[in-house]
Nucleic acid binder design. Structure first.
Lengths: 203, 203
DNA sequence: CAGTATGCTTAACACTGTTAAGTAAGAGGA
DNA sequence: TCCTCTTACTTAACAGTGTTAAGCATACTG
């Protein structure tokens, strides 16, 4: 009886179909501008069908964010591998992070800016953010490499990592959420931030 | 006929009452968790009465944000006045900004993080953000003073101002939106950011 | 072939922001 | 004082939201 396996395959396929539809809508129009009914319409099922595959709208979002995080983490890892100089690697990693955010603004919004948290959110949180933690770990490793190579002066690795993250996030999020503001050239702003932070950390 | 004036005074009083109720609810529970009906209930009027005083929910929010901005701008200005050293003034200003955000997280969320923009948003935007621009102007002036005093090396004032803002905003927004993350001590993180940026900018 | 489990849908609930229409009270003029 | 008209507010409703409970076929199992 391969029928059971086939049905399970079909179930998984529909799950993916829902995910794909939701991702496209979320990314193009933003999380809160997309209704469950619209997602359902897109996949040509009834709205309630989605609830057979996902707990709620937020879970749908979390699942998509995980994918996104995975892509980001992968990119950061390949940068770390390909670079020789640890400082250069860190800089490239930061740029990659910001660029990633600017290229996927709605994704970024949803994962880092709005970051809607479930009411009564326990193990769910930790699990969904595993990929995010992996990306954070990459950044931390890059910082640690700079310190080990004596390029940075000895300091609290955790704090420095978080500060650099905050620097990148600050630029990314402001550029995304306030597009009407008279910003200077984006790349100038990004480079200035990264260079200034790194300069300030130099031994 | 003083009756006309009296009625106008009463109208203004109700407007303030609405604003006060909305502010308290927004600040305590967050913008999107508060419904017009709840605000109405609090002031003991029907929900539609609010629409006689404000265009919509977002306008209510904007009005409140203006007040908040004004407070922030005032604080920053007094810091600028009281400090002698321009670099110290800049540092204190940044700290004041971050502290302000952390002390009023829901206000900060609503003004800087979510920053909901009206669809078909023209002069409204510019006007509502006048106070924000004033605060930005203060920061810019502080940066300019550092450059004029030859403490910072000559650079693009606009870019440096925006970078510093992004640095402060990055920390503030991350601390607010991801309270579950294993952050290092807040004050350590804030000081590290400010000191590192300023060090990186020093002549 | 009967019975049951599976996968999906229809209908509904309790909300949301917002608008149109209606009502009651007070002001202004004769 | 009486009538009219404006002002301030309310009630009812619309169109939408996320989500759940109940029902209905289809397909699998004994």
């Amino acid at each position: 009886m391969g029928s059971k396996q086939r049905r399970e395959r079909e179930k998984e396929a529909l799950r993916q179909e829902i995910l794909d539809a939701a991702r496209e809508l979320f990314v193009n129009e933003g999380y809160e501008n997309v209704s469950m009914r619209r997602i359902a319409e897109k996949i040509e099922y009834s709205p309630t069908t989605i609830y057979l595959y996902f707990d709620d709208k937020l879970s749908l979002l979390y699942a998509i964010c995980e994918e996104t995080f995975a892509r980001l983490a992968k990119r950061m890892e390949s940068i770390a591998r390909d670079s020789k100089d640890p400082v250069e690697a860190l800089k490239l990693g930061c740029r990659a992070y910001v660029d990633f955010g600017l290229k996927n603004p709605n994704h970024y919004k949803v994962t880092f800016i709005n970051h809607p948290q479930h009411p009564r959110d326990d193990k769910r949180h930790a699990k969904e953010e595993s990929m995010g933690m992996r990306a954070y770990g990459n950044l931390r490793a890059a910082v640690e490499a700079c310190i080990k190579a004596k390029k940075f002066r000895e300091t609290n690795v955790e704090a420095v990592t978080q500060m650099i993250w905050a620097g990148g996030h600050g630029i990314t999020s402001l550029l995304i959420t306030m597009p009407g503001f008279p910003w200077v050239k984006k790349s100038e702003l990004i480079d200035l931030m990264i260079d200034t932070l790194v300069d300030g950390l130099m031994a």
